[in-house]
């Protein structure tokens, strides 16, 4: 029988480091605070190293797609060539050099802006689809609220609609009372869920590190 020694060791290390960082946040002892700072610095260094591993993973996924001639392999080839060009340009001119900034300004920003434009269309389509798929009271309230929020953003063709625009209009009322109350309620639930998740990791019940 093979005994996996890595699992208990990694679990103990993760729990100990987690507890020290948490304790260092709440209890202001010099030893705890400095240990906490050191562990957080290590975390930042590890995250930076993970970035290199992540990029290698990204390249290997796309290289595999190109070499095995999978569907969409052309786009993977474009990604690999673009990566090589960007690496050469950024390596030569530096991260804030002219060439790098040109790529950023004239390639990356336009592409991401186009995706953002598509996003607006995707969202409008999603609301139409929602009403077709789930025609219940919640969906109708959601659609009406979205409509009121959009129309109430600014005067329509320069004309303010009474009751919709302005500081006492429907849009302002929706944003100030029900939307804010709902958002706070959701955020409280999310915060409780986040604490529960963190405690499970600290207790070793959840082991996202494969231990």
């Amino acid at each position: 029988m093979k005994f996996n020694l890595r699992a208990p060791i990694s679990t103990v290390v993760a729990m100990a480091v987690g507890l020290i960082v948490l304790a260092g946040y709440f209890i202001q002892l010099p030893l705890l605070t400095s240990l906490r700072r050191i562990f957080l610095q290590w975390g930042v260094i590890l995250a930076a190293s993970a970035l290199v591993v992540g990029v290698v993973n990204l390249l290997s996924v796309h290289w595999r797609k190109v070499s095995t001639q999978q569907k969409g392999g052309v786009y993977s080839a474009v990604l690999l060539v673009s990566f090589a060009i960007t690496l050469v340009v950024a390596g030569y001119s530096g991260p804030t050099g002219g060439g790098t900034m040109w790529i950023f300004r004239y390639v990356q920003i336009p592409i991401e802006s186009s995706l953002m434009a598509i996003l607006a269309v995707a969202l409008a389509y999603a609301i139409a689809r929602l009403l077709r798929r789930r025609t219940d009271a919640f969906s109708i309230v959601f659609a009406i609220t979205v409509l009121a929020a959009l129309l109430g953003l600014a005067p329509i063709l320069g004309v303010e609609i009474p009751g919709l625009h302005g500081p006492d209009g429907l849009r302002d009322l929706l944003a100030r009372i029900p939307a804010l109350a709902g958002a706070r309620g959701i955020l409280l639930g999310v915060a409780l869920g986040a604490i529960a998740t963190a405690l499970r990791v600290l207790m070793g019940a959840d082991r996202p590190y494969g231990g």
Partner: peptide, 24 residues
Amino acid sequence: DSLPAQAVIYAAAHEPLIGEEMFA
């Protein structure tokens, strides 16, 4: 966990999870 994403998810997803439902 993000509010803008939850609004988008409610509208677009077949099976949305709202608020803390995801953590369950």
